[in-house]
């Protein structure tokens, strides 16, 4: 039985790496008593896989996890077992069973939404930054992994600034996976180049992950 679970990685555990998150889920599921299938081999592991890597330092509102259950479990029973043993910062959202052949999360998710909180004092500047980036025909940054100059403009799908009482939130929808992928630190670099430095960001997180098909976006929980 294959299931897909949506969860929140809260701010208190934002500095956990992808590997730490895998470990966190393995231990949580072992504590919960929910029976998960084991991989074969000398080092049996629980069969579970996480969605696209959330960079260290970011928290995530809607992250995803696939797992293979052993035995009959209902959504309510699963939820009540797991919610009793969750570590600080983790909350479980929607979940459902998925067909066995559903493509893995890592391959399916191809767009992410990042949000950056900006205080009032910087909101004016942030509007300029967003306009500048939108009008730019190319956005060249130096990639941290190989020091190569890269144009990340094709990977930025959407850019918005939402003003609120405390300041504003900058929302960026970007491509994940494949040659056009934009990593979060690259986005931060581009924002800095266009007038919004990192010290102007009071918080940042990943708001959502999507499976994008042309102009339509659907959540990994939708058919």
């Amino acid at each position: 039985m294959r299931w897909r679970v949506q969860y929140k990685k809260g701010p208190v555990i934002r500095f956990l790496s992808h590997l730490d998150m895998v470990r966190l889920w393995e231990r949580t599921l072992r504590r919960s008593g929910v029976t998960i299938e084991l991989s074969r081999g000398f080092n049996p592991h629980l069969k579970l896989s996480l969605g696209t890597v959330l960079p260290v330092g970011l928290w995530g509102k809607r992250e995803y996890l696939d797992l293979e259950l052993d035995g009959d479990w209902t959504i309510d029973r699963f939820r009540s077992h797991v919610s009793q043993v969750l570590p600080p910062g983790i909350e479980i959202g929607n979940l459902r069973d998925i067909p066995p052949k559903t493509p893995a999360l890592m391959a399916a998710i191809n767009a992410s939404v990042y949000r950056i909180a900006i205080p009032k004092a910087w909101t004016e500047a942030a509007f300029g930054t967003v306009d500048g980036l939108k009008q730019a025909s190319e956005i060249i940054i130096v990639r941290s992994k190989d020091k190569k100059k890269t144009d990340i403009r094709p990977g930025i799908i959407e850019l918005n600034l939402i003003e609120d009482r405390l300041g504003s939130e900058l929302e960026a929808v970007v491509v994940v996976g494949g040659p056009q992928a934009v990593r979060f630190p690259e986005l931060v670099m581009a924002l800095a180049d266009f007038g919004l430095p990192e010290e102007a960001m009071t918080d940042y997180w990943r708001e959502a992950n999507y499976i994008r098909d042309g102009g339509t976006f659907r959540s990994p929980l939708e058919d």
Partner: peptide, 22 residues
């Protein structure tokens, strides 16, 4: 700490909030 931890190796060493922490 949130400001400086992105600059150091293995920041989760410094953030606590582990399971069973008292």
């Amino acid at each position: 700490l949130r400001r400086i931890l992105p600059l150091v190796s293995k920041p989760a060493r410094y953030t606590g909030h582990e399971l069973n922490m008292i």
